[in-house]
Computed example of a mutant assay.
Amino acid sequence: MTFHKRKHLGKTIKAFSYNVLGVVLPFILSLIPILFLKKYDKIESFLDEGEFLIFASGLYTGALFLFGENTASIKKMHDKILSALCIWLLIICSTSYAIIYCVQLLKLNAGIDLPFIRIYSLIIFFIAVLASYRSVFIDFLKTYPQVDVEKISKQDVDNIVNDI
Rank of each mutant, 00 (worst) to 15 (best):
T2D: 12
T2Q: 13
T2A: 12
H4K: 00
K5D: 09
K5Y: 09
H8D: 01
K11A: 03
Y18M: 12
V20F: 11
L21H: 14
G22W: 02
V24Q: 01
L25M: 07
L25S: 13
L25Q: 03
F27K: 01
L29Y: 12
L29G: 12
S30Q: 15
I32C: 14
P33W: 07
P33Q: 08
L35M: 15
L35D: 08
L35I: 10
K38P: 04
K42I: 05
K42A: 07
K42G: 07
E44K: 12
D48W: 14
E49T: 08
E49W: 06
G50N: 08
F52E: 05
F55A: 02
G58V: 00
L59Q: 01
Y60F: 14
G62C: 03
G62R: 00
A63C: 12
L64I: 10
L64Q: 06
L64E: 01
F65S: 12
F67T: 04
F67W: 09
E69S: 14
E69C: 10
S73K: 02
I74D: 00
K80V: 08
I81F: 11
L82Q: 01
W88Q: 07
W88H: 14
L90K: 01
I92N: 08
I92P: 10
I92Q: 05
I92L: 14
I92R: 04
C93I: 06
S94H: 02
S94L: 02
T95G: 10
S96E: 01
S96F: 00
A98T: 11
I99T: 05
I99A: 11
I100F: 07
I100T: 02
L105K: 13
L105T: 01
L106P: 02
L108T: 04
N109F: 10
I112R: 02
P115N: 03
I117C: 02
L122Y: 12
L122E: 12
F125D: 06
I127N: 08
A128M: 09
V129C: 07
S132I: 05
S132W: 03
Y133G: 02
Y133E: 00
R134L: 04
S135K: 00
F137L: 10
D139S: 09
F140E: 00
K142S: 10
K142W: 05
T143Y: 12
Y144S: 06
V147P: 07
V147W: 10
E150S: 09
K151R: 09
D158C: 09
I160E: 15
V161W: 14
I164T: 15
I164M: 15
